[in-house]
Amino acid sequence: MATEAPPSPTSAADVADGLRAVGYLPEEATALVAYLAAKLGKPVLVEGPAGVGKTELAKALARYLGRELVRLQCYEGLDEAKALYEWNYRKQLLRIQAEAGDKGWSDVQEDIFGEEFLLARPLMSAIASEQPVVLLIDEIDKTDQEFEAMLLEVLSDFQISIPELGRVQSKTHPVVLLTSNNSRELTEALKRRCLYLWLDYPALEHELEIVRMHTPELPETVARKLVEVIGMVRDLDLKKPPSIAESIDWARALLLLGVKDIDAQTFKETLSVIVKHRTDMDVVSERVGLKLAAVDAKPA
């Protein structure tokens, strides 16, 4: 897929086609914002419930643009040393011990703060890369506010200041995606630097298309019914509503089982693929199961 000349999209439709070609079906707004991000060089903040393809979007963009994907998975307690860079102090210590005897302090100091002793972490490697990359900062809402503040320099100027070395300026412009599950309000400063994209559960037809793309062998009627049932399940008040990934898993499971129609029985047997909480299971099997049973009874 990585062609010799990486594509440079000239319209949102280009991006939509390109993403389709690498196996990601974007909605119109998604393609538009992705296009703008590539064009303006602005980071995109992608929010939405879990499992609607936020991370997948970044991967697909990387495939489409023929770029490497650099991923920074955020978690509570993530700090600069793990995200930006770190001095390899063990190597530095060894160096000092090996040479301290016969060299002056200033020589050694100059020596041990060189690039040789720098461990590049994801943000650093994205900035310093010779080739343009796609940088994915996943689940930014899991980090602390301090970390967000540190990101500001990277995101607006694409540079990193290292006190001992000076500034590392990016040679190419990375496409940056930040994802968030919206579990905490991000700071205004960060939002201001980003374009905003809200991804939600797809509309019925769109999800059907996605399911069909991943399991083309599944009969059309089964796929349609599957998507309708998933929609019903999402309407219930669940702890964890099924995501797109779970629809696809379910479709694959049904395909393996060689199911011809989703009736109350098959639904009950394969329920665990889409619902992953015990209390949720009770609710779903009660509500949706009954509905399916009613539908089955009618034509008989």
């Binding site: 707004a29 538009l32 914002v33 703008l36 903040l45 929010e47 939002k191 201001r192 374009l195 905003y196």
Partner: peptide, 10 residues
């Protein structure tokens, strides 16, 4: 959509 992406951030 383009305006929304730039003006509305939540």
């Amino acid at each position: 959509e383009a305006l929304a992406a730039t003006l509305a951030k939540s």
